[in-house]
């Protein structure tokens, strides 16, 4: 009973993402919007990957974009055509410079490297909690950015990596986001996920019940790292170009804020947050360029330039300050009528 009801919680996120995919691909909307739909779906993948650790463990990580960055750089560097590598990234190690792989292989590589990096980093770091954990993960981000931004043997260094195949189409973005959501859901329903969630609610009781918090956190961190790496791969194949600063502070802030805006405590919150912020972002962008009719009518002119940046930041700040539990208040998706009927049935049978 509980399990069947529980699996209904997956319907919301998956439908939302599938809908985004379908709407984005059909003629209902301006074809030019397709890129923004793809972007939103990749954001969902990153935010859900972040959620797998932060949401389930209750420990904040400011370093998750490190794994996105590793995935993005791995997928990017390994798919630039071999013939162009000597021009674009002349400093690469020979074995990196002389080989390239296909789209799917590069995504797999991104996930594996992201997961491995998280595992290695997590072994010592998962002993920390609270502010110390936050700062330590942030320090990991600092190191990752600094090295990716400078070391020309593994990437473009301070330059921009270009000519990356833009293989993240709408279908791939949709499937990727749904896959990340499904893995996140399966994890949180699994024995491991439940143990970790128990430790989030009450660490002392969880320890007393024999739960090895360090180990459970580490699994979640590594899984979350792998999903982040995959999402990074999707991201780089969407953009076609990559600089270290693309996967640094702004993305960290944006994805963390998306998660908190949606509600840190639930998978549904991660999805809602990513979609809501992306939607607002796209809307303001269009309004700025005078493509939203009613805004033009209302103001008599397009929204002034820069509204998008300020609007998104303001929206996030306002939600964070006045709705600290996020839009979903940390609840999972449920079908309202169905849920109530079942609850009543359960009560009367009890």
């Amino acid at each position: 009973m509980t399990d069947r009801r529980g699996s209904l919680e997956l319907i919301g996120p998956v439908l939302a993402l599938a809908l985004a995919g379908i709407v984005g691909s059909t003629g209902f909307v301006d074809p030019a919007l397709e890129n923004e739909f793809k972007g939103a779906l990749v954001s969902v993948a990153i935010v859900v990957a972040l959620y797998v650790f932060v949401g389930n463990s209750g420990v904040v990580s400011f370093g998750h974009v490190s794994f996105v960055a590793v995935g993005a750089f791995a997928a990017g560097v390994m798919t630039v055509p071999v013939a162009l590598k000597p021009t674009i990234t002349p400093g690469l190690f020979a074995f990196l410079g002389e080989h390239s792989v296909g789209n799917l292989a590069s995504l797999a590589l991104a996930a594996v490297l992201g997961g491995l990096f998280a595992l290695v980093v997590g072994i010592p770091l998962m002993r920390l909690s609270g502010l110390a954990a936050g700062i330590a993960t942030f320090a990991v981000l600092g190191v990752t950015y600094n090295i990716l931004n400078n070391w020309e043997k593994i990437g473009p260094g301070p330059l921009t990596l270009t000519t990356i195949p833009e293989t993240t189409g709408l279908l791939q973005a949709t499937i990727g986001a749904i896959a990340v959501v499904a893995v996140a859901f399966a994890y949180q329903r699994s024995r491991y996920g439940r143990k970790l969630r128990a430790s989030r609610e009450d660490p002392a009781a969880a320890r007393a019940a024999g739960i090895d918090i360090h180990r459970e956190r580490l699994w979640a961190f590594a899984l979350s790292g792998a999903l982040s790496g995959l999402a990074g791969g999707l991201l780089v194949h969407l953009a076609g170009t990559l600089q270290a600063r693309d996967v640094y502070l702004d993305l960290t802030f944006l994805t963390l804020a998306m998660l908190v805006v949606g509600g840190v405590g639930s998978l549904w919150g991660a999805v809602v947050g990513a979609l809501a912020v992306s939607a607002l972002d796209s809307f303001l962008l269009r309004a700025e360029s005078g493509e939203v009719g009613f805004v033009d009518d209302l103001l008599g002119k397009p929204l002034w330039g820069g509204s998008r940046l300020v609007g998104v930041a303001l929206f996030m700040a306002v939600v964070l300050v006045f709705l600290p539990q996020g839009l979903t208040r940390g609840r999972e998706f449920h079908l309202p009528r169905l849920g109530r009927r079942r609850a009543v049935a359960q009560e009367s049978s009890a």
Binding site: V60, A257, G306, V310, A313
Partner: peptide, 17 residues
């Protein structure tokens, strides 16, 4: 902390615009 992150970003955006 995340909220002050957001405020920082907001102020940066305002300055940028």
């Amino acid at each position: 902390l995340v909220a002050t992150f957001a405020i920082s970003y907001l102020l940066q955006s305002i300055a940028l615009v």
